[in-house]
Design a protein around this nucleic acid. Structure first.
Length: 115
DNA sequence: TCTATGACTCCGG
DNA sequence: CCCGGAGCCATAG
């Protein structure tokens, strides 16, 4: 089912986050762009913050454009986010995803128009 | 309505 | 890639 355009921005961001496949990651900007506001990446982070702690949103699969775990700071432990990603087979070094280009999942490509 | 904020991104050096 | 500065956007108060 398509993500309703009627839904609030941050809720749509959460829906996209839920669609991130296991072992894959994406960026705030990619989600923002998919929602129609490529420059609202910061707001996407805001949505993650709201969802985190409330619902089971894989926010750990959302990183910045460089593949750096900028949001790890907001998880319970500073290593929780990294461990969750490593548990999915993602290599991380110095807070950065090593094979970022390989695990990167772009909703604009994978979800697209979403038949 | 206006101001402040932020888990971002782009650009130049 | 690292660093500093500016821009953009939605939400909260």
């Amino acid at each position: 089912m398509a993500i309703s355009q009627e839904t609030d921005f941050f809720k749509r961001a959460q829906e996209v986050a839920k669609k991130i496949p296991y072992g894959r990651v994406t960026s705030y900007g990619a989600i923002a762009k998919f929602l129609g506001a490529s420059r609202a990446a910061r707001t996407v982070g805001w949505a993650m913050n709201a969802s985190h702690g409330s619902n089971a949103i894989p926010a750990h699969r959302v990183v910045n454009q460089k593949g750096i775990l900028t949001g790890k700071h907001h998880f319970e432990g500073t290593r929780l986010m990294q461990q969750l990603l490593e548990n999915e087979g993602i290599k991380i070094k110095n807070n950065q995803i090593v094979n970022f280009d390989m695990v990167f999942w772009d909703p604009n490509i994978e979800l697209r128009v979403e038949k």
